[in-house]
Design a protein around this nucleic acid. Sequence first.
DNA 1: CGTAAAATAGTCAATATTGAGTAATCATCT
DNA 2: AGATGATTACTCAATATTGACTATTTTACG
Lengths: 174, 174
Amino acid sequence: MRERELLLLGILMAHSQHGYQINEFIEMNLSRVTDMKKPTAYATLDRLAAQGFVEVRTEQAGNRPVRKVYSITAPGTEYFRSLLKENLMSGDKMQFASDIGLMFLDHLSPDDAASLLEERLQALNQEIARHEKAPPHGFGLGVDLAMDHHLAHLKLDRDWLAQVIGDLREHGRE
Amino acid sequence: MRERELLLLGILMAHSQHGYQINEFIEMNLSRVTDMKKPTAYATLDRLAAQGFVEVRTEQAGNRPVRKVYSITAPGTEYFRSLLKENLMSGDKMQFASDIGLMFLDHLSPDDAASLLEERLQALNQEIARHEKAPPHGFGLGVDLAMDHHLAHLKLDRDWLAQVIGDLREHGRE
DNA sequence: CGTAAAATAGTCAATATTGAGTAATCATCT
DNA sequence: AGATGATTACTCAATATTGACTATTTTACG
């Protein structure tokens, strides 16, 4: 929720944009770092507007439906910087949905477990490949850093998984 | 949401428990893998009960308030196994709240950014230390695996962060 | 024994989030 | 020119989640 505000304000720091544009940008470019959906973005922008951190004005291009253009205000910029510092200072909560499944691995035979994890490993490899062949975004250093960070974790997961699958297979044969 | 059901059913697979017990267990032992709060657990258990995957009966010990004891049913066990397989097969979404901050690193001077990240690195090191000196849970192989997985990611993050901080400091001096 | 703190066992109102729309315009093809 | 599908730009009702209680009982201790 805090991160949602940070994300939206950060996007508006680049330049004013209307809602559809913002959501388009997130869906196209930022799906790796957030899963925020459109209605959440609008709701969050409304909240930020109510607190004076963004301004909304409506505009109309041609005779398309009117749209809401959001701009960050001076207090909003201040708030953005405080959210940014807070985010950088304090660590991630680091929770992996897959750890919940791992905890209950004992309910499956080692071979069944290994097969399921192999499927996951393949998907992971594909994601890593997509990631690596994607050209650098070109939105500055920070974005590239975030992408590199993400990729590093994907690769760790790949190696960790491969190791575990090996162990399970061995355990299954013994 | 799916993971929440998996977690609760998995806990009930060990043995029937009442709500307070379940929540106590999660808070005490599982805070690394989930952030589910009590009301969510109760709501989820109610939903599972409505679908016939768990049974609720009330009991009273001494003259403490009556409590609800939840047990997993046969269809619940089936459902648990399907959730487990799904979870193991499909990868994590892998989103790091901190990536959002990283993306906007350019709004800070390299030295400011490095200082903030250093604070984070310290917190990370403490968490790793806590993690490493915690005794193995003793709830079976799966739980140990999940903890190891978590720890591996923490360590990666530590190393990655140290590297980035170094780069930022260098960049600041140049 | 009296009482302050901790443990037990939840509930509820408020907030956050999203799946599934709506409704208009524009592009493309036949 | 009319039909089809994509794009633009949101909105709403339904669901998920949680902070902040409530209310009792047991334990600790001076």
